[in-house]
Design a protein around this nucleic acid. Sequence first.
DNA 1: AGTATGTTTAACCTAATAGTTAATTAACTG
DNA 2: CAGTTAATTAACTATTAGGTTAAACATACT
Lengths: 118, 118
Amino acid sequence: MSTDQLSVTFAALADPTRRAILAHLAQGEASVTELAQPFAMSLPAISKHLKVLERAGLVTRSREAQWRPCRLEAEPLKDVDHWLTQYRQFWEQSFDRLDDYLQELQAEEKKKGRKHKT
Amino acid sequence: MSTDQLSVTFAALADPTRRAILAHLAQGEASVTELAQPFAMSLPAISKHLKVLERAGLVTRSREAQWRPCRLEAEPLKDVDHWLTQYRQFWEQSFDRLDDYLQELQAEEKKKGRKHKT
DNA sequence: AGTATGTTTAACCTAATAGTTAATTAACTG
DNA sequence: CAGTTAATTAACTATTAGGTTAAACATACT
C-alpha cells in the first residue's frame, strides 16, 4: 500500500466493516467490544480494523480503566471531500452543457494531435 | 478486497498512480501510452491500474484503431460524495457548537450505561 | 506479406490484507 | 490474591495487490 495520507485514508475506507465502525462512531464514542458486537468476527479482527482506522487518523482512542473508547476524527474525510472537488463538475454539469462541450472539444484536439504524429 | 461498489471504488482510489490517471483524464480522453508517460512504470502495470479503475466504473474505454481511449466516469465519485454527506457535520460544525455538544452528551450517556452494567 | 505501433495476457515474485486461535497484558472486583 | 472483563499481541494461513519481463494480439502502413 502507498503511504501518502490520501492513499492511507482511501485504503482504510475500502472495507465495509471499517465504514460500519465509522458510522457507529458517528453516533458517539464506543468501546472496542461495543464496536465489535454487530459483526460475526473475532475481537482481534476488529482490533486490527481499528488500528487501520487509527493509522489513517480516522479514529483516536483514549483510556478509561480497561476500556479504550474510540472516537471519530473527521479531518481525513474532509481531505477526501476536498480531493473530490476537482471532480464535482463532472456530475454537476448536467443542467449546463458547456463543460460537457468543452470536454468533447478537448478530446477532439487530442485525437487530431495523435493522427498528425502517426 | 470486498466486492461492494463503494469498497471497490475506495480501493481503486487508494493508489496515487490511479488518482494521477484520473486527474489526467479530467483533462479529457487519453490513450494508455499517453497515460503511462508520466510514470516510471511498465506499460502492463498501467494496463492493470486501468483495469482496476474500469472495474470500479471510474473509467470506460472505447476502441479507435489500435488505441483504447480512456474516459473518466464520475458516477462512482458522486457516490463517494454522497457517502461523505453523513460525516460533513463533523467538520462543518466548528462555527456552531451545538452538534459538538450533542456528541459529547451521547458519549456521556454511553459511559454511564457501561458503568451501570459493570 | 511483413513490419511498426499500441495494448493485453501469461507467468512469476514479493509484500501486504484480512482473518483465525491461543496466549498475554492491563485494570477492576470481591 | 484470585478471578473477571477488556483489549492486544503472537503466530500462522490464505488471498490479493502491485510490480516485473517476455510473449501474444490487434490494427495500420507500405
